[in-house]
Structure formats: C-alpha cells, structure tokens
Design a protein around this nucleic acid. Structure first.
Lengths: 133, 133
DNA sequence: TTGACGTACAACCGTTCGGTTGTAGGATGA
DNA sequence: TCATCCTACAACCGAACGGTTGTACGTCAA
C-alpha cells in the first residue's frame, strides 16, 4: 500500500516548501497552538498566517480542533513520517540498483573489456559520499 | 552543522513538489539519463522537461555532466538524504517533547487525575521505529 | 447586552510557476 | 562539409502563490 495519490504528495511537498509553514509545523509539533498565537510570532498579517495554516491543513500536515473560540492547530506526525518515508524509498531503490550492478559485475568476471551497456558507471557507489553541497 | 540555509530547503521542497520532477529524480537515480531521453518519457515539450531538470539542478537534487553532446543527468542521493533527515529531525524533536512530558507526569505522581496536557498522545511512541541516523 | 477577541473569507495585487513556441549554437556522423 | 542531434535560452501566457485590507460572524467576559 502506501498508495498516496500524486496530488496528495504534491500538496505535502508544496506545503513544506515555505519556511513560514515549516516553522508552523515545527511549533505546532511541540504543542497545539491557536491561529492567533501562531500569527503573533510572525511579521505578517493574521490573514496570511491563517492562509498558511489552511494550506498545511489541506495537505494533511496539520489538524485543527475547535476549543471555544480558539482553533487549536497541531502537527500530524504521521503525515510527516509519510513524506519522510517517501524519500526513504528512493534510497532503498538506489541501494537495490547498486546491488544489481554489483551482482552483474561479479557475474561477469571474465575478460570482456568493452564499455557499452554500463555507461552510467564512473561513480563507484561502494563508498559513502553523503552530505554533498 | 547541518546549517542548511532556508533558501536551500525552500528550493529542495519546491523542486520535489512537482510530480514530473519527482519522477525525474526517481528515474535519474537508477541510471544517468540525457535531457532528451528524459523528455521522451513525458507528454510535454522538450523545453518544459529541460526547465524541470534546471529546477532540480538549482535545488541540488540532481547533477549534470556533459558527455559529448549529451548532458547526463543524475540524482544526488546525498541531497535526498538531507531532505529526508530534515523531516526525521522533526520526529526526534517530537520524541524529546514526549519524554519531557512523561518525566513531568512521573515527577508529579500525586493524585491529580485529570487529562489536560497530553491530549495528543494515544500514540505511544515506545515501540520500535528506528531509522534516525 | 455589549464590547473585545478569535476566526473565516472575499477581493485585490504583484510575482512566480509550468507550460508553450521559436531561435541559435556546439558536437557528431556520413 | 553538411545535415542532424542535443541542448540552451528568450519571450510569452494563463494559473497559482504569498501577501495585503476589509468585512462578517460566533464566542466569551463584564
């Protein structure tokens, strides 16, 4: 499973592509906050913050729960995990590809020295190489 | 450490917020692909795909390497990890908060029986779920 | 009841985005 | 050399984005 329609994923990444919204997610993760409490923390209008919260809610990254006249916003950790796992899947896919190539190279073994099929090489994936830029 | 300017993070999430670009990232992860090879796979103009690749490159999610007249595009797994870890950090932060609350409740100990602070709970994080780095 | 608070939403505006077409230039192969 | 391939980039267009102001409505405390 983990089907996740593209539109949902679009919305999640889109929502996280704004620093104000990422900050809201982080704050609302620690404790539920009303929209106006959130708005007080940013140098923009209340309506703007309200819109940001709406975007996050539409993306499912945050939930709102009414409490009197307050609308308490809280981050949905499950949704965050979903996004994270999406990226994690790419790493798995990459690792499988490396194993496939390794197996291929091991199986070859003999002397064929041409270089046609695997023009991707040049990068020896054996090492670490994390944390670039 | 792990500084990552907000602009960089903005660019990364922004870049991943489009399904075509996510698909390019996934394809270029398996093997390096030229821009026109990529363009052949989508129902849009060559220039559009070229723009998508440019966005990914600007975000650091992909690198290009000239090979004759081809421009081979390849996904940078390190950058993908960076984004994933950003989300992972949120989970860590959340777990720390839970521990803080648990400690607080334990320290209290006495008779207060209401349920006020921890209304997020219901999800006991005590189980496994490794994968933090 | 009344006034202040918290929220929702519409309307507007400048900028960015995702796409198009068109033009131009470097590399390759016959 | 010359036609072809692959790429780069400018110009344009409609839609979406991030922000603003203004208005309206439910809820709470005096």
């Amino acid at each position: 499973m983990t089907a996740q329609l593209d539109d949902d994923v679009d919305a999640m990444f889109q929502a996280l592509a704004d620093r104000t919204r990422r900050d809201i997610v982080a704050r609302a993760l620690v404790e539920g906050l009303s929209v106006s409490e959130l708005a007080a923390k940013y140098d923009m209008s209340f309506a703007a913050v309200q819109k940001h919260v709406a975007v996050l809610e539409r993306a499912g990254l945050v939930t709102k729960q009414r409490s009197g006249r307050r609308q308490v916003t809280r981050t949905d950790l499950g949704a965050i995990r979903t996004v994270r796992d999406l990226l994690g899947d790419l790493e798995i896919q990459w690792r499988e590809r490396v194993e496939r190539i390794d197996a291929l190279l091991a199986a070859e073994g003999d002397g064929s020295a041409e270089g046609d099929a695997p023009d991707t090489t040049t990068t020896r994936p054996g090492s670490s190489q994390q944390r670039s830029r």
